[in-house]
Amino acid sequence: MDLNLQELERTEFPVPAELENNIAITSLSQLYNWGRRNSMWPMLFGLACCAIEMIATASSRFDFSRFGFEVMRATPRQADLMIVSGTVTKKMVVPIVRLYNQMPEPKYVLAMGACASGGGPFKEGYNVVSGIDKYLPVDVYVPGCPPTPQALLFGMIALQRKIDGQSIANGDDVPWYGIGPAEPTPVPVLGPDIIDPRQMDMIRRQAEAAAEDMAMVGQRELPSATQLVAAKVATAETTGAASAAISDDALSFVLPTGGNPWTEAEEIREKRRLRALARKAVRASRRSAEAEEE
């Protein structure tokens, strides 16, 4: 929602007739947001492939200046918006958090593309952070690998809409309208692996558990599909019942309360098997028909 001058001039407050065309009335929040949303300066900050599409979005064909994203600033101190454009690695997240801390408030983060949103295709990598939201608060996620310039523009406009809904009167809703500056985000440390200082408690507990040869905190063994079926067969053999309820503690957290996933898995398998058999039969008949023709 943008400010519409004609509408602002039509006000229910009494305005002297000679000033009617010169006075507009609106709320302070709305005026403030109008100024802010139309002068969001992104930081000139490219990480990977998405940065190329970000540059294309800034260039003549798409041109995000049209929407108030005017110029990109290389220094965080002049930027309002951090577009995390690409894969965040463990080595790079340290400077990223530092840059974020250096941006003046109000500040926003846009996660551009699959990698910045959740690790993307590189998620399984040993040096990849699965999403910048593990460290920084993200306002808008733009999917895509890489998102097209149109998608990025859409995300940026979505951010403007978000700003429209924020109110200076509500300090609880938006951190920077509260009292005093916000706490900086703790900068991660590169140790044997990346260490988020906020997780130190968990790491210490894990270390103590490991020293006493106990299970790692936060690590669980999940059954694989084959294990599930094997266990199902085993229970069926021992109890003689095809749909025996399973009460293994290790599994209970994946199993919903109603329905038994193992029977469901079995049913799905059975359906697939039948479908495969049907396809096989169709192929065989087609082949014999062809052979006859020849």
Partner: peptide, 29 residues
């Protein structure tokens, strides 16, 4: 399996494959 999604994060919630010494000190790192 059976329509219930497994994700690798569920096996390893904090995404760590390192065991630290019990006297880990952040400042030293």
């Amino acid at each position: 399996p059976g329509g219930h999604a497994h994700r690798s994060e569920e096996k390893n919630v904090f995404g760590k494959n390192v065991t630290y010494p019990p006297d880990i000190d952040l400042n030293r790192l």
